[in-house]
Design a protein around this nucleic acid. Sequence first.
DNA 1: AACAAGATTAGAATAATTCTAATGTTAGGG
DNA 2: CCCTAACATTAGAATTATTCTAATCTTGTT
Lengths: 143, 143
Amino acid sequence: MSAAKTKKTATNETALAEQLRAVSLRPTQQRMALADLLFGRGNSHITAEALYSDALTAGVNVSLATVYNALHTFTAKGLLREITIDSTRSYFDTNVDEHHHFYFEKSGRLEDIDHNRVKMTRLPDAPEGLSVSRIDVVIRVDG
Amino acid sequence: MSAAKTKKTATNETALAEQLRAVSLRPTQQRMALADLLFGRGNSHITAEALYSDALTAGVNVSLATVYNALHTFTAKGLLREITIDSTRSYFDTNVDEHHHFYFEKSGRLEDIDHNRVKMTRLPDAPEGLSVSRIDVVIRVDG
DNA sequence: AACAAGATTAGAATAATTCTAATGTTAGGG
DNA sequence: CCCTAACATTAGAATTATTCTAATCTTGTT
Ligand SMILES: [Mn+2]
Ligand SMILES: [Mn+2]
Ligand SMILES: [Zn+2]
Ligand SMILES: [Zn+2]
């Protein structure tokens, strides 16, 4: 590889490696490459297949099984959030802040709704002894 | 079959047949039997497998493919509502009124939240040209 | 460099759901 | 009541998303 490429990726790699180490994950080649694809651009809602396809396009040497492993590991570590809306596929969201979604029924696309654009003034109490882990609001639109 | 059974089912059948005809569906044997299992009791959230299993237990002669056909047809006709929360299975909800859900993450059970127990005082506008078909609120609890 | 822990891999396995093409049932007209 | 066309059911194969397995590689550490 060229000096230029070495330098350029070295910078990204250090930053990404930090992020992974911060959640006690080894900064392996495939994780780094996938993390770069996921967090390097503003690619918010992605399926496993789509990420796999992006990886292949980018020349990353990775298997689909590893993509699933990485997505689940990242989700478990709080770097991603899994969204289930369509029964045929899961979306992984690079936005882990509290927020909601528009779901475009026709295209299957998801769009973020900032948390403060939704205000709930009345909510039921959690059933006795249980605590709320998350509240999801999905606004389905026919597009 | 006995006279008693004939009489008893005749009553149910007429009522169920009406419901099906009302949405231009032929009141076939299996649809009637499945509708009876779905709407006869307060069985709110059910999976295809669970309904199939209920049908077998009840001695109904039906295939799993038909259960899926019926669930989707009923959903298309507005008699049921499909809920996707867990990527491994779909739930069908016999409650088609506007309402929300508690989702018990551990057991995978769903519980209704009456529509008026949630009040949203701020909501974003639908993207230009599109209309909102539904708003789903899911409160996930760790039980 | 050598080791152990952890990660990746390909491919098989699983599980939910859909499809297919043959067979059976229903509704309505004669 | 009988016919027939439209519609529904069926079994099983096919498809698709996802998970598992067991062998092979990497990584972080000594
Ligand atoms: Mn976003
Ligand atoms: Mn599936
Ligand atoms: Zn999002
Ligand atoms: Zn419900």
